[in-house]
Design a protein around this nucleic acid. Structure first.
Lengths: 146, 146
DNA sequence: TTAGATGCAAATAGTTTGCATTTGT
DNA sequence: ACAAATGCAAACTATTTGCATCTAA
Protein backbone atom coordinates (compact mmCIF):
# COMPACT_ATOMS: atom_id res chain seq x y z
CA UNK A 1 0.00 0.00 0.00
CA UNK A 2 1.35 3.42 -0.97
CA UNK A 3 2.12 6.14 1.52
CA UNK A 4 -0.77 8.15 0.19
CA UNK A 5 -3.08 5.21 0.67
CA UNK A 6 -1.87 4.69 4.20
CA UNK A 7 -2.52 8.32 4.88
CA UNK A 8 -6.09 8.00 3.76
CA UNK A 9 -6.66 4.90 5.83
CA UNK A 10 -5.25 6.81 8.74
CA UNK A 11 -7.71 9.62 8.23
CA UNK A 12 -10.56 7.14 8.32
CA UNK A 13 -9.36 5.69 11.60
CA UNK A 14 -8.65 9.08 13.12
CA UNK A 15 -12.15 10.20 12.40
CA UNK A 16 -13.42 7.16 14.29
CA UNK A 17 -14.74 5.14 11.39
CA UNK A 18 -14.35 1.42 11.10
CA UNK A 19 -11.98 -0.03 8.57
CA UNK A 20 -14.37 -2.34 6.80
CA UNK A 21 -13.74 -4.52 3.84
CA UNK A 22 -16.10 -2.48 1.67
CA UNK A 23 -14.37 0.78 2.48
CA UNK A 24 -10.91 -0.60 1.99
CA UNK A 25 -11.82 -2.22 -1.31
CA UNK A 26 -13.39 0.94 -2.69
CA UNK A 27 -10.51 3.10 -1.54
CA UNK A 28 -8.06 0.72 -3.18
CA UNK A 29 -9.98 0.78 -6.43
CA UNK A 30 -9.92 4.56 -6.45
CA UNK A 31 -6.19 4.62 -5.86
CA UNK A 32 -5.50 2.06 -8.56
CA UNK A 33 -7.37 4.00 -11.18
CA UNK A 34 -5.46 7.18 -10.69
CA UNK A 35 -8.36 8.80 -8.96
CA UNK A 36 -10.71 9.74 -11.76
CA UNK A 37 -13.81 7.60 -11.67
CA UNK A 38 -17.52 8.11 -12.02
CA UNK A 39 -19.78 6.37 -9.56
CA UNK A 40 -20.70 4.01 -12.38
CA UNK A 41 -17.03 3.17 -12.91
CA UNK A 42 -16.63 2.38 -9.25
CA UNK A 43 -19.78 0.28 -9.17
CA UNK A 44 -18.62 -1.71 -12.16
CA UNK A 45 -15.17 -2.32 -10.75
CA UNK A 46 -16.55 -3.30 -7.36
CA UNK A 47 -18.83 -5.77 -9.09
CA UNK A 48 -15.85 -7.28 -10.89
CA UNK A 49 -13.58 -7.46 -7.88
CA UNK A 50 -15.87 -8.02 -4.92
CA UNK A 51 -19.43 -8.73 -6.04
CA UNK A 52 -20.55 -9.30 -2.48
CA UNK A 53 -20.32 -5.57 -1.84
CA UNK A 54 -23.67 -3.91 -2.46
CA UNK A 55 -24.48 -0.79 -4.41
CA UNK A 56 -25.58 1.07 -1.34
CA UNK A 57 -22.26 0.56 0.36
CA UNK A 58 -20.47 2.01 -2.60
CA UNK A 59 -22.53 5.18 -2.43
CA UNK A 60 -22.22 5.34 1.33
CA UNK A 61 -18.46 5.02 1.12
CA UNK A 62 -18.16 7.65 -1.58
CA UNK A 63 -20.20 9.98 0.61
CA UNK A 64 -18.03 9.30 3.61
CA UNK A 65 -14.81 9.78 1.70
CA UNK A 66 -16.14 13.06 0.39
CA UNK A 67 -16.95 14.26 3.89
CA UNK A 68 -13.41 13.37 4.91
CA UNK A 69 -11.99 15.26 1.92
CA UNK A 70 -10.38 12.12 0.58
CA UNK A 71 -12.20 12.56 -2.69
CA UNK A 72 -14.31 15.20 -4.36
CA UNK A 73 -17.24 14.79 -6.75
CA UNK A 74 -17.03 17.02 -9.78
CA UNK A 75 -18.90 17.31 -13.06
CA UNK A 76 -16.48 16.42 -15.77
CA UNK A 77 -18.25 14.59 -18.51
CA UNK A 78 -21.84 14.82 -19.63
CA UNK A 79 -22.88 16.21 -16.27
CA UNK A 80 -25.62 14.34 -14.39
CA UNK A 81 -23.12 11.79 -13.08
CA UNK A 82 -20.33 12.87 -10.80
CA UNK A 83 -16.73 11.98 -11.36
CA UNK A 84 -14.87 11.41 -8.12
CA UNK A 85 -11.40 12.80 -7.94
CA UNK A 86 -8.81 11.77 -5.39
CA UNK A 87 -7.63 14.78 -3.46
CA UNK A 88 -4.02 13.99 -2.82
CA UNK A 89 -1.85 15.68 -0.27
CA UNK A 90 -0.36 17.53 -3.17
CA UNK A 91 -1.90 19.21 -6.15
CA UNK A 92 -4.43 18.07 -8.63
CA UNK A 93 -5.97 20.45 -11.06
CA UNK A 94 -7.96 20.37 -14.25
CA UNK A 95 -8.53 22.13 -17.47
CA UNK A 96 -11.85 20.93 -18.77
CA UNK A 97 -12.88 21.44 -22.36
CA UNK A 98 -16.52 22.47 -22.26
CA UNK A 99 -16.95 21.32 -25.84
CA UNK A 100 -15.46 17.82 -25.98
CA UNK A 101 -15.02 17.17 -22.23
CA UNK A 102 -11.33 16.43 -22.54
CA UNK A 103 -9.52 16.81 -19.26
CA UNK A 104 -5.99 18.14 -19.06
CA UNK A 105 -4.31 17.81 -15.71
CA UNK A 106 -1.66 20.15 -14.51
CA UNK A 107 0.49 20.66 -11.48
CA UNK A 108 0.25 24.00 -9.90
CA UNK A 109 1.58 26.03 -7.08
CA UNK A 110 0.99 29.45 -5.59
CA UNK A 111 -1.98 28.05 -3.70
CA UNK A 112 -0.36 27.10 -0.41
CA UNK A 113 0.10 30.72 0.47
CA UNK A 114 -3.51 31.50 -0.28
CA UNK A 115 -4.60 28.46 1.68
CA UNK A 116 -2.80 29.73 4.76
CA UNK A 117 -4.21 33.20 4.38
CA UNK A 118 -7.71 31.82 4.15
CA UNK A 119 -7.27 29.58 7.18
CA UNK A 120 -6.32 32.57 9.28
CA UNK A 121 -8.86 34.96 7.86
CA UNK A 122 -11.85 32.65 8.21
CA UNK A 123 -10.56 30.49 11.05
CA UNK A 124 -11.18 27.35 9.03
CA UNK A 125 -9.16 24.15 8.84
CA UNK A 126 -8.56 23.29 5.20
CA UNK A 127 -7.81 19.78 4.05
CA UNK A 128 -7.95 19.91 0.30
CA UNK A 129 -8.66 21.95 -2.76
CA UNK A 130 -9.53 21.66 -6.40
CA UNK A 131 -8.88 24.18 -9.12
CA UNK A 132 -10.59 23.89 -12.45
CA UNK A 133 -10.29 26.01 -15.55
CA UNK A 134 -12.94 25.81 -18.25
CA UNK A 135 -12.62 26.59 -21.91
CA UNK A 136 -11.75 25.06 -25.25
CA UNK A 137 -8.90 22.63 -25.73
CA UNK A 138 -6.51 23.13 -28.64
CA UNK A 139 -8.52 20.93 -30.99
CA UNK A 140 -11.85 22.54 -30.27
CA UNK A 141 -10.37 26.04 -30.25
CA UNK A 142 -8.91 25.47 -33.71
CA UNK A 143 -12.23 24.30 -35.10
CA UNK A 144 -14.20 27.10 -33.59
CA UNK A 145 -12.47 30.39 -34.26
CA UNK A 146 -14.11 33.62 -33.13
CA UNK B 1 -30.33 44.22 -17.26
CA UNK B 2 -26.86 44.32 -15.72
CA UNK B 3 -23.69 44.53 -17.76
CA UNK B 4 -22.80 41.02 -16.68
CA UNK B 5 -26.17 39.79 -17.88
CA UNK B 6 -25.76 41.53 -21.21
CA UNK B 7 -22.42 39.90 -21.56
CA UNK B 8 -23.90 36.50 -21.06
CA UNK B 9 -26.68 37.14 -23.55
CA UNK B 10 -24.02 38.28 -25.96
CA UNK B 11 -22.14 35.02 -25.53
CA UNK B 12 -25.27 33.09 -26.37
CA UNK B 13 -25.81 35.09 -29.58
CA UNK B 14 -22.16 34.91 -30.57
CA UNK B 15 -22.21 31.17 -30.29
CA UNK B 16 -25.14 31.13 -32.68
CA UNK B 17 -27.87 30.12 -30.29
CA UNK B 18 -31.36 31.60 -30.36
CA UNK B 19 -32.42 33.95 -27.67
CA UNK B 20 -35.57 32.17 -26.60
CA UNK B 21 -37.93 33.09 -23.83
CA UNK B 22 -37.01 29.97 -21.86
CA UNK B 23 -33.29 30.71 -21.99
CA UNK B 24 -33.71 34.35 -21.12
CA UNK B 25 -35.99 33.57 -18.21
CA UNK B 26 -33.66 30.97 -16.78
CA UNK B 27 -30.63 33.17 -17.19
CA UNK B 28 -32.44 36.01 -15.44
CA UNK B 29 -33.44 33.78 -12.57
CA UNK B 30 -29.85 32.67 -12.12
CA UNK B 31 -28.65 36.26 -12.07
CA UNK B 32 -31.28 37.35 -9.59
CA UNK B 33 -30.39 34.67 -7.12
CA UNK B 34 -26.75 35.59 -6.93
CA UNK B 35 -25.78 32.56 -8.91
CA UNK B 36 -26.00 29.70 -6.45
CA UNK B 37 -28.90 27.44 -7.27
CA UNK B 38 -29.52 23.74 -7.46
CA UNK B 39 -31.43 22.41 -10.44
CA UNK B 40 -34.37 21.95 -8.08
CA UNK B 41 -34.21 25.62 -7.09
CA UNK B 42 -34.27 26.67 -10.70
CA UNK B 43 -37.13 24.33 -11.53
CA UNK B 44 -39.16 25.69 -8.64
CA UNK B 45 -38.53 29.30 -9.54
CA UNK B 46 -39.34 28.69 -13.19
CA UNK B 47 -42.59 27.10 -12.16
CA UNK B 48 -43.45 30.14 -10.08
CA UNK B 49 -42.49 32.72 -12.67
CA UNK B 50 -43.22 31.07 -16.01
CA UNK B 51 -45.07 27.80 -15.57
CA UNK B 52 -45.38 27.34 -19.32
CA UNK B 53 -41.67 26.50 -19.47
CA UNK B 54 -41.14 22.76 -19.22
CA UNK B 55 -38.71 20.78 -17.08
CA UNK B 56 -36.80 19.56 -20.07
CA UNK B 57 -36.08 23.08 -21.26
CA UNK B 58 -34.67 23.95 -17.89
CA UNK B 59 -32.23 21.06 -18.04
CA UNK B 60 -31.42 21.76 -21.66
CA UNK B 61 -30.67 25.37 -20.86
CA UNK B 62 -28.51 24.53 -17.87
CA UNK B 63 -26.54 22.15 -20.07
CA UNK B 64 -26.11 24.77 -22.73
CA UNK B 65 -25.04 27.44 -20.28
CA UNK B 66 -22.51 25.03 -18.86
CA UNK B 67 -21.06 24.31 -22.29
CA UNK B 68 -20.75 28.06 -22.81
CA UNK B 69 -19.01 28.44 -19.44
CA UNK B 70 -21.72 30.77 -18.21
CA UNK B 71 -22.35 28.52 -15.24
CA UNK B 72 -20.73 25.51 -13.63
CA UNK B 73 -22.32 22.59 -11.83
CA UNK B 74 -20.63 21.76 -8.56
CA UNK B 75 -21.38 19.54 -5.60
CA UNK B 76 -21.97 21.79 -2.67
CA UNK B 77 -24.64 20.32 -0.47
CA UNK B 78 -25.60 16.71 0.08
CA UNK B 79 -24.03 15.69 -3.21
CA UNK B 80 -26.28 13.90 -5.69
CA UNK B 81 -27.81 17.21 -6.86
CA UNK B 82 -25.66 19.80 -8.57
CA UNK B 83 -25.55 23.40 -7.54
CA UNK B 84 -25.06 25.70 -10.49
CA UNK B 85 -22.71 28.58 -9.94
CA UNK B 86 -22.57 31.66 -12.14
CA UNK B 87 -19.09 32.07 -13.51
CA UNK B 88 -18.69 35.81 -13.63
CA UNK B 89 -16.07 37.67 -15.57
CA UNK B 90 -14.39 38.22 -12.25
CA UNK B 91 -13.68 35.91 -9.38
CA UNK B 92 -15.89 33.61 -7.44
CA UNK B 93 -14.46 31.03 -5.15
CA UNK B 94 -15.59 28.78 -2.34
CA UNK B 95 -14.58 27.33 0.92
CA UNK B 96 -16.87 24.39 1.53
CA UNK B 97 -17.26 22.85 4.94
CA UNK B 98 -17.31 19.12 4.40
CA UNK B 99 -19.08 18.65 7.70
CA UNK B 100 -22.00 21.11 7.67
CA UNK B 101 -21.87 22.15 3.99
CA UNK B 102 -21.56 25.82 4.80
CA UNK B 103 -20.17 27.80 1.91
CA UNK B 104 -17.87 30.73 2.44
CA UNK B 105 -17.18 32.83 -0.61
CA UNK B 106 -14.01 34.73 -1.11
CA UNK B 107 -12.43 36.97 -3.69
CA UNK B 108 -9.13 35.89 -4.93
CA UNK B 109 -6.37 36.89 -7.23
CA UNK B 110 -3.07 35.44 -8.41
CA UNK B 111 -4.95 33.26 -10.90
CA UNK B 112 -4.85 35.48 -13.97
CA UNK B 113 -1.16 34.91 -14.32
CA UNK B 114 -1.59 31.16 -14.06
CA UNK B 115 -4.47 31.29 -16.52
CA UNK B 116 -2.26 32.96 -19.10
CA UNK B 117 0.56 30.53 -18.55
CA UNK B 118 -1.80 27.61 -19.04
CA UNK B 119 -3.30 29.07 -22.20
CA UNK B 120 0.13 29.29 -23.75
CA UNK B 121 1.44 26.01 -22.47
CA UNK B 122 -1.55 23.92 -23.56
CA UNK B 123 -2.79 26.13 -26.41
CA UNK B 124 -6.25 26.27 -24.89
CA UNK B 125 -8.71 29.13 -24.77
CA UNK B 126 -9.94 29.54 -21.20
CA UNK B 127 -13.21 31.20 -20.35
CA UNK B 128 -13.73 30.59 -16.69
CA UNK B 129 -12.48 28.94 -13.57
CA UNK B 130 -13.57 27.80 -10.16
CA UNK B 131 -11.43 27.33 -7.10
CA UNK B 132 -12.71 25.41 -4.13
CA UNK B 133 -11.11 24.67 -0.81
CA UNK B 134 -12.48 21.93 1.42
CA UNK B 135 -12.24 21.55 5.14
CA UNK B 136 -13.96 22.46 8.37
CA UNK B 137 -15.53 25.84 9.02
CA UNK B 138 -14.80 27.62 12.31
CA UNK B 139 -17.83 26.11 14.04
CA UNK B 140 -17.15 22.57 13.01
CA UNK B 141 -13.41 22.89 13.61
CA UNK B 142 -14.08 24.04 17.17
CA UNK B 143 -16.35 21.10 17.88
CA UNK B 144 -14.02 18.58 16.40
CA UNK B 145 -10.53 19.16 17.73
CA UNK B 146 -7.73 16.78 16.81
C1' DT C 1 -20.10 -6.95 23.52
C1' DT C 2 -22.19 -3.68 20.84
C1' DA C 3 -22.45 0.46 18.13
C1' DG C 4 -21.61 0.90 13.68
C1' DA C 5 -21.59 -0.86 8.99
C1' DT C 6 -23.35 -4.00 5.59
C1' DG C 7 -26.21 -6.15 1.76
C1' DC C 8 -30.34 -6.65 -0.32
C1' DA C 9 -34.41 -5.17 -2.85
C1' DA C 10 -37.80 -1.94 -3.24
C1' DA C 11 -38.88 3.01 -3.44
C1' DT C 12 -37.62 7.53 -4.83
C1' DA C 13 -35.72 11.24 -7.16
C1' DG C 14 -33.63 13.49 -10.81
C1' DT C 15 -32.82 13.70 -15.65
C1' DT C 16 -33.39 12.53 -20.52
C1' DT C 17 -35.88 11.27 -24.78
C1' DG C 18 -39.15 11.28 -28.72
C1' DC C 19 -42.08 13.80 -31.19
C1' DA C 20 -45.51 17.10 -32.74
C1' DT C 21 -45.71 22.05 -32.40
C1' DT C 22 -43.93 26.63 -31.99
C1' DT C 23 -40.54 30.38 -32.43
C1' DG C 24 -36.47 33.35 -33.44
C1' DT C 25 -33.84 35.02 -37.13
C1' DA D 1 -39.24 29.94 -44.59
C1' DC D 2 -37.07 26.80 -41.89
C1' DA D 3 -33.71 25.20 -38.76
C1' DA D 4 -33.64 25.33 -34.07
C1' DA D 5 -35.88 25.13 -29.72
C1' DT D 6 -39.89 24.07 -27.02
C1' DG D 7 -43.37 21.58 -24.02
C1' DC D 8 -45.32 17.55 -22.74
C1' DA D 9 -45.39 12.95 -20.74
C1' DA D 10 -43.40 8.74 -20.64
C1' DA D 11 -39.08 6.14 -20.04
C1' DC D 12 -34.82 5.77 -17.73
C1' DT D 13 -31.12 5.86 -14.55
C1' DA D 14 -28.84 6.92 -10.58
C1' DT D 15 -29.19 7.15 -5.81
C1' DT D 16 -31.38 6.40 -1.28
C1' DT D 17 -33.95 3.99 2.35
C1' DG D 18 -35.50 0.45 5.68
C1' DC D 19 -34.37 -3.35 7.96
C1' DA D 20 -32.43 -7.73 9.44
C1' DT D 21 -27.79 -9.39 9.72
C1' DC D 22 -23.00 -9.10 10.42
C1' DT D 23 -18.42 -7.34 12.05
C1' DA D 24 -14.52 -4.35 13.64
C1' DA D 25 -12.94 -2.60 17.75
Amino acid sequence: MSDQANLRVQRLRDAGYKLTNARLTILTILEQHGGHMTSADVLEEVDAVAPEIGRASVFRSLDLFTRLSLIRPTYINDSSTPTYVLLPGGHHHHIICTNCDRVIEFEDCHLEKLEHELEQKFRVRLTGHLLEFYGLCDNCAARQPD
